[in-house]
Amino acid sequence: GGVPVWLRKRLRALCNSGATKRPHFESSWYGPINGVSYTVFTVKDGFIIKPQAKFRDKVSPPSSVIPGRSNSVSSNTSNMSTSSYNVEARPRTEPGPEADILEPDFVICIAGSSLTGDKIVYIIEIKRGDEDAFKASEQITHYVKRAVSTGAMISTGIVGLLVLGSETFRI
């Protein structure tokens, strides 16, 4: 499927590296997995791959907004920040760090010229094979749930991939 032989071999080598030759860092997987992702989900076909993508939490407009007063609503909501998945998030003008940002290793999206219209196709989290599988599965499930809550997906839904060393789990 267009994935070069050397890259297939490299992935195979990573999978077969075992406990002793296993890469020290999960980042050793990033390049090869990014390579495979971009080979299949090409820019030409309308996809984009986001490394360390951010899933921001949905927030309601400021509490100072009084329901029923449309002028007040519009002036306050215009200050809200909109994510690339069209989620109303905390405005940048609010002081302090934004709470609860999730950051999966990669997100594969259907993109477009709009800054707020990305649709999530895959969420990929990569861990070394010796890491806690249960914790990792909880983490990716949390990411998928947050992604689903954005509604930014096509009818075929969102798939989470947990790469745990030589094994990949589909969520």
């Binding site: 297939r8 096509i154 009818s155 798939v159």
Partner: peptide, 17 residues
């Protein structure tokens, strides 16, 4: 890789051009 290829095919069918 096969998973990716299958899903891409599926997406290209429903994706607006």
């Amino acid at each position: 890789i096969q998973c990716f290829l299958d899903r891409k095919e599926e997406i290209m069918k429903v994706m607006p051009v």
